[in-house]
Nucleic acid binder design. Structure first.
Lengths: 217, 217
DNA sequence: CGGTCACTTGATCGTCTTCAATACCAGTGG
DNA sequence: CCACTGGTATTGAAGACGATCAAGTGACCG
């Protein structure tokens, strides 16, 4: 985006901090802000009336959030760790869009990418086994890690809890735990106890598992 | 959208016909067209290497298709029945967007709505039981039917096969069949044999089931 | 008619869930 | 320093839901 436009955007932003567990937005509430995560990780999720939770995505530094079709949020946004986020008042953001076609263009690109990711996730939730889901998750998290780490880095940092991973993959916490143990025993990964980190020993094999090209026995 | 802009859009369109099973687009192929379904229904899906299929959505008359983040399609688009679609060459469509901000605005709205639908579907695939999934499907199809039928209409037309429904809901064809039978025995619905139609007897109860507020026993 | 296709129904099996016990760490206060 | 507590993760045993395998029905078609 052109520098002048970026400056106008920045002029509109307020940087806010959120503690772990704090809400950036809540499903069903009026959607009066959009966000850009600067630091930390947030979870996006929807709930069923009885409390079942589906995490539809995680957002890390540089991710944009808060697109809503209607006038209320379609999902809850909650800080996982200590989060800093650029916050824009929606009405002002909207009026800025009016005279900045480049911004709207960028938003459409982002939305399209999100949509593509959502389709991958549907494939995962509808058709992959527990083992394939966990392998996919680790591979994708690894890829995301490469945005900020050097290529060739094999350590995956998982800021989210097992419960979050389970609710993201459509599994239970026990199945996630068991599956990670199985991958460890097969020497595909190494777990870092009490550090929420995983080292990938064989990235290619893990990808093969993730895509259903291996049986993971 | 303003009439003048609509006219320019129409000038760019070619109406194409597709027979059942014919592809409008294929996953991985260069994305050089976008579509607007005029008549009929198409399925959008992704495949795993071993053939497992996840249908990410169906598109009916008036639905817009073909948004791609990259330069290739993220999913396959296949005609279910006899389909007519407005086809736009992507490059020309793109250049039209350049001078029509309203068009891009509309596309962003559509993409946001799609994204919201995708999140509902993730909730369904990750956290709902077979019974809840089928009930949700029927309710949503009913809602879609109201776009072209009078309100109060209780007949749901299902142009897609049981296999399609199964691949959309992350189930097998047998489970879909059994679940429909169960709903019929509970007198929530009436099946129209050999006609791919369903009559909803108790819409409220079906919605309650769909949202997990009832146990569907 | 024989053939295929879409769907239904039944019996059995396996994966993941549920329920439960245990381990481990961090923080708190005696 | 050490018990006590709460949160997170691992592991085991039992159970359920949906998948798989298999058979059967009716519609449509050459």
């Amino acid at each position: 985006m052109p520098h002048g436009e970026l400056a106008r955007l920045a002029a509109l932003a307020t940087i806010k901090r959120f503690k772990p567990g704090q809400f950036l937005a809540e499903e069903g509430e009026p959607a009066d802000a959009v966000f850009n995560v600067i630091r930390g990780t947030v979870r996006l999720y929807k709930l069923l009336p009885d409390g079942r939770r589906q995490i539809t995505g995680f957002a890390d530094a540089a991710d944009f959030l808060g697109l809503a079709a209607g006038h209320t949020y379609a999902f809850t946004i909650e800080a996982i760790d200590s989060v800093q986020a650029c916050t824009f008042v929606r009405t002002r953001f909207r009026s800025l869009i009016e005279d900045l076609p480049a911004l709207e263009h960028r938003l459409l690109e982002l939305a399209s990418a999100e949509l593509e990711a959502a389709q991958y996730q549907m494939l995962l939730l509808g058709r992959k086994s527990a083992c394939e889901r966990v392998a996919t998750f680790l591979c994708i998290r690894h890829k995301i890690g490469l945005r900020s780490a050097d290529p060739g880095c094999r350590t995956v940092l998982l800021p989210m809890s097992r419960t979050d991973i389970a609710d993201y993959l459509g599994l239970t916490i026990e199945t996630v735990s068991r599956t990670l143990t199985k991958l460890r025993k097969n020497e595909l990964i190494t777990l870092q106890p009490h550090k929420r980190g995983v080292i990938i020993n064989d990235l290619d094999a893990l990808w093969a598992l993730a895509e259903g090209c291996a049986d993971g026995s």
